[in-house]
Design a protein around this nucleic acid. Structure first.
Length: 362
DNA sequence: GCCACCGGTGGC
DNA sequence: GCCACCGGTGGC
């Protein structure tokens, strides 16, 4: 999924009736089994991933050759994306890429395009502006191209059965009748957005309930939080709270709501070090033991000590974080190259779908 | 006072 | 390192 830096869209927006009333039975799902594997392989850029859908961020990395991916290693993915800082002015403002089903003519089968918000309207580093999901995308299990999913509901529906029913381009014909693997990808992993890998097979929330994903700011101790909002508006943030709430409101259980319909699994950011690492346990040395010489842990010490991919990176940068910290980051291109897209199959959720494994390990 | 967000910790 | 949980708190 694509995560966008937005604070304004907290309330769900109604989708056009044509989207809401999609006939799910018409979805063509592929039954080819998918193995869960996290090896990183790359595929030759035969898919036309040229960044054409992202005019502000031409994706040169898409032209790089990639190794073949065997079908047995394919896997559908689910992910989210936020804007990644670029150099210069864009460091200070996160450009939004959003997907607006109505504006993109989803119901008419026209080509979908990510939209860019006016940069000036997105003061990413102002307080309270956190990354949020900008688009849902799923990677085709056959051609590896990313396809935008028109609604969160549709995305949740695909995600729920992703392992048994891998997503393929033909699946998108439900809302784009002409789409096929021959068409250009809807979106590329080009470093202009933050991508997060969602987990497959998460149950759709019960009718009337909402599952919210809140992306935390960079440098936080965790990437995101999941909340469920009950029909009453009550916000629940753990399985314990869900269980308690259902006990206190047996009418939901009587209506068929079960604890198995809830999951607090969060996606993972593809960007390395988006989440602040937990400090290693302090080791007591003779000098450390001297209270006069011990200065206390600096939460960013590890980032300043030249860890691989950080301080020594030619284009690493200091980024202002929404909250307070400054974190030195490595080159985003490495993190978000198109190569990684083709390493995996994915579903873009509220968050872009990516290979769940770490593209960076190889 | 409420609550969205963040930090921290225990367990695995 | 990840996950689950929940306390703290700043901003409203």
């Amino acid at each position: 999924m694509l995560v966008k830096s937005l604070s304004e869209d907290k309330s769900p927006k109604p989708y056009p009736a044509e989207i809401r009333d999609l006939d799910i039975s018409r979805i063509q799902m592929q039954s080819r089994p998918i193995k869960l594997t996290f090896k990183l392989k790359v595929k030759k850029d035969e898919n036309g991933c040229n960044g054409s859908t992202l005019p502000d961020h031409p994706d040169k990395s898409c032209q790089q050759p990639i190794d073949e991916v065997s079908p047995q290693e394919e896997e559908n993915h689910i992910a989210a994306v936020d804007e990644v800082n670029q150099s210069g002015e864009e460091d200070a403002q996160k450009q939004l890429v959003v997907y607006d089903p109505a504006a993109n003519g989803t119901t008419t089968g026209e080509e979908v395009q990510p939209l860019s918000f006016p940069k000036k309207s997105i003061p990413f580093h102002s307080s309270k502006v956190l990354p949020s999901v900008g688009a849902f995308t799923v990677q085709c299990a056959e051609c590896f191209k990313w396809r935008l999913i028109p609604t969160k509901e549709k995305y949740e529906e695909i995600r729920e059965h992703l392992l048994e029913q891998p997503f393929v381009c033909e699946t998108a014909r439900e809302w784009r009748p002409e789409i096929s693997c021959e068409d250009q990808p809807d979106i590329c992993q080009d470093g202009s957005r933050l991508w997060a890998i969602d987990k497959p097979n998460i149950a759709q929330p019960p009718p009337g309930w909402q599952r919210l994903l809140r992306i935390r700011g960079e440098g936080s101790t965790r990437f995101a939080d999941v909340y469920y909002v009950a029909p009453s508006g009550k916000r629940l943030r753990s399985m314990v709270e869900i269980q308690k709430y259902l006990l206190e409101h047996p009418e939901y259980v009587e209506a068929g709501v079960s604890i198995s319909q809830f999951s607090f699994q969060i996606p993972r950011p593809l960007q390395e070090n988006y989440v602040r690492k937990r400090p290693a346990p302090a080791r007591i040395t003779p000098s450390d033991a001297n209270p006069l010489s011990w200065a206390g842990p600096d939460e960013n010490t590890d980032l300043r000590l030249g860890l691989p991919g950080f301080c020594d990176a030619p284009d690493s940068e200091i980024v202002d974080l929404p909250a307070k910290k400054k974190v030195r980051r490595g080159p985003s291109k490495h993190v978000f190259s198109c190569d990684s897209v083709y390493d995996q199959q994915g579903v873009e959720l509220e968050e872009p779908y990516q290979a769940r494994n770490d593209v960076f390990e190889i």
